[in-house]
Design a protein around this nucleic acid. Structure first.
Length: 699
DNA sequence: ACGGATTTGACC
DNA sequence: TGGTCAAAT
């Protein structure tokens, strides 16, 4: 059943590039006087001198460890320079590091496939570049190598006493009798050293790298010689390397799995796994993990480098340890608001710079109940469709919190409301936005359609809006397959309705019009209705924009196509004169395809559907100037994903009549997007773990 | 008072 | 699926 997609054994050239104590470097670039000094980046100076989050190599030499607090670091290394992480909205603000990471990515991404693995790490697939080099300018014919390549570490290459390491490396690079794969790796080493020099020149950051024939080995190698060095893993060195490699050094084995490997099997090195059959490993750890282990013991890892330069989600969170635990809804709301503001800002940056939209909002909470020492991990995370705009995200996050709190406290036990609480404390909050898709960057008209004037998603005109509708109960037809998250003690249905009022003229898109997110009159949604919060109490976030909460009975049955679509199974109101924006089509597709559906909770449904609309004017977010400054040369990483984005839609499922509702220019552009996409959709390389393993294990 | 804040991926 | 958990940096 594991399908081998690729027959070739690895004749690939994969690199892992890892920035050296990245946050420190970013701060040192900002403040060059710190260069060369023992330095650490800390956050929150209050408790024991703050927590270290990055430590320079000078400081590490003084014995400073990452797990120390500021005070201990001072003790270990009195001369240490402690730099505080930027703070915004009362929490750590990592934007400058993210932006710096993007700078690096934009340098590293033009020599081959590039995958942003974290804020300061990338994987590169340099196979093609290496092959070309081997054809055109093979190392064996090269006279002078850059110093930097010659400083490479080549695993298994013996450097005898008295011999010149660089000379040995040079000879290794030039070996004419090397295996083909190792010649490729030699080319890879040359390319990577050039890339690293370029990174240094263009960003002033140093990095380390590993060059090998797969991701796992490249990753392993990049950590072996730091800082500012690179390590090559020739094929012949793999066996020895793994034979003595402690289990925990291997990625994914640094935690519980690695520990159980030691306790279950008594192995302490990766090579130790060789004595177990694949079946044995599968029996212990399951099919996938078992096979994965069997493979890595042999240095086999077919995981591909994904061409992805941008993160898959955005999150913003904060912990409230010990005495700082939040004990009132108000304080929770306050912090949720801060977090959501940051999230919103980042979502809009992503929209501006990368033309991407996120579709799901998730709230994670950690909390305790007094007298219940076991309660710590039990606060359920909750998610809902993401609506753009600070206010809306804040509202939804609070609703998610209240829903989670009800579950957490055990439903009808306590009042969720009221601020008097001595039963619980929240020790951590985080909001995140996921399911990010590209929108067609296309060109003119689509862009204009979204953004209004000129440039696409202009900062001030994010499109989005959804109104909250509270239905009066409909006894739910338990449609079987749903999981019961718990009973909601209210006979309410929660619906997020589309912005159905979008007209297709510039005028109606006026973001300054606070009403432009409301449904059009034709939909029968214009009545002001009662404010109701799911908890049945007064609305506590009622400041600012008047929230429109509508009773569902006000809705005409056909008024809301997209929620019908989301709720019902592909029921399609024929040729309905619908209010569709491209973005609605977009969203509707995704809604019906994936996430949004109904969740049935016993007798009470919570139905959620959504779409983008337009944000009200007061959804302020500012693109931070600083970010732009640090982004020299416009470092927003632009990737050609727009087209692919459309590829992923099953256009056949889009009702053609919807398109007819679009303004003519949009229609045309839309169709040109649709047409070429007829070819079978490119199967996205799965992300399952099965996918790591490759061919091998014949079958 | 897990270094904290993120991010990703597997699994059920 | 959504939600939980592990793991990494």
């Amino acid at each position: 059943m594991p399908v081998a997609r690729r027959e070739t054994c690895d004749a690939r050239v994969i690199a892992h590039v890892d920035m050296d104590c990245f946050y420190v470097q970013v701060e040192q670039r900002k403040q060059p006087s710190l260069r060369g000094l023992p330095t650490a980046v800390i956050q929150y100076n209050s408790y024991k001198g703050g927590a270290l989050i990055a430590v320079s190599y000078e400081a590490r030499r003084c014995g400073v460890k990452r797990s120390m607090r500021g005070d201990e670091a001072k003790e270990a290394c009195p001369q240490i320079q402690l730099v505080q992480v930027p703070v915004a909205r009362g929490k750590a603000d990592l934007n400058s590091y993210r932006n710096a990471g993007s700078e690096v990515v934009s340098v590293l991404s033009h020599k081959g496939l590039c995958e942003r693995a974290s804020i300061d790490e990338v994987y590169l697939d340099l196979t093609h570049a290496a092959e070309s080099m081997l054809m055109e300018t093979p190392p064996e014919c090269t006279q002078d190598f850059e110093e930097e390549v010659l400083k490479s570490h080549v695993l298994g290459l013996e450097i005898k006493d008295g011999s010149d390491a660089k000379e040995e490396v040079r000879k290794w690079l030039c070996r004419s009798d090397a295996r083909y794969q190792d010649k490729l790796l030699a080319c890879g080493a040359i390319i990577v050293s050039e890339l690293r020099m370029q990174v240094l020149k263009e960003t002033e950051f140093t990095c380390s790298a590993g060059i090998a024939h797969n991701k796992m080995l490249a990753k392993l190698a990049s950590a072996m010689n730091k800082p500012a060095q690179q390590t090559v893993v020739p094929h012949s060195s793999v066996e020895q390397l793994l034979a003595s490699l402690p289990i925990k050094k291997m990625k994914h084995l640094g935690g519980k799995l690695g520990s159980s490997l030691q306790s279950d099997l008594g192995v302490s090195t990766v090579g130790g796994l060789l004595q177990f059959s694949e079946e044995q490993l599968q029996q212990w750890y399951g099919i996938n993990t078992g096979t994965w282990l069997w493979n890595i013991a042999r240095g086999v890892n077919g995981e591909e480098v994904e061409g992805r330069l941008l993160p898959k989600s955005h999150g913003s969170g904060k912990t409230f340890p010990g005495p700082q635990a939040l004990k009132t809804i108000d304080s929770v709301q306050y912090w949720l608001n801060q977090l959501c503001e940051e999230l919103n800002e980042r979502l809009h940056s992503d929209l501006d710079q990368n033309k991407r939209i996120a579709q799901t909002l998730t709230l994670h909470v950690r909390a305790y109940k007094i007298g219940d020492s076991d309660s710590h991990r039990k606060f359920p995370s909750k998610s809902c469709p993401l609506r753009y705009g600070s206010r809306k995200i804040q509202e939804d996050a609070l609703i998610l919190f209240q829903a989670g709190l009800r579950d957490f406290l055990g439903f009808n036990t306590f009042k969720v409301h009221g601020n008097e609480n001595n039963n619980w404390g929240v020790t951590s909050l985080s909001v995140s936005a996921s399911k990010i898709v590209s929108i067609p960057s296309g060109t003119h008209s689509i862009a204009k359609y979204f953004g209004g004037k000129g440039k696409f998603p202009s900062s001030s005109t994010s499109n989005q809006s959804v109104d909250v509708v509270i239905n009066e109960t409909v006894p739910s037809s338990s449609s079987g397959s749903e999981n019961c998250t718990g009973m909601v003690p209210y006979d309410l249905q929660l619906q997020y309705l589309d912005d159905t009022g979008m007209k297709h003229s510039d005028a109606c898109l006026d973001p300054q019009d606070p009403l432009n997110h409301l449904s059009s009159k034709a939909d029968g949604l214009t009545e002001e209705s009662i404010l109701m919060s799911p908890s049945g109490s007064e609305d506590r976030m009622a400041h600012g924009e008047p929230r429109r909460v509508l009773l569902a009975k006000d809705l005409s049955p056909v008024s809301n196509i997209s929620s019908l679509k989301a709720v019902g199974k592909k029921k399609r109101a024929a040729g309905k004169k619908e209010n569709c924006s491209i973005i609605n089509i977009f969203n509707n597709y995704h809604n019906s395809q994936s996430s949004l559906k109904l969740k049935v909770t016993n007798a009470h449904d919570v139905k959620i559907s959504s779409a983008l609309g337009s944000s009200s004017a007061d959804d302020s977010y500012s693109t931070c100037n600083e970010d732009i400054d640090t982004n020299k040369g416009g470092c927003s990483v632009v990737i050609p994903q727009g087209r692919e984005a459309w590829c992923s839609y099953h256009i056949d499922e889009i009702d053609p009549s919807i398109i007819d509702e679009l303004p003519p220019e949009i229609q045309q552009e839309f169709r040109t997007w649709l047409r070429p996409q007829k070819r079978p959709s490119v199967a996205k390389p799965g992300s399952s773990i099965t996918h790591y393993f490759l061919p091998d294990k014949s079958r």
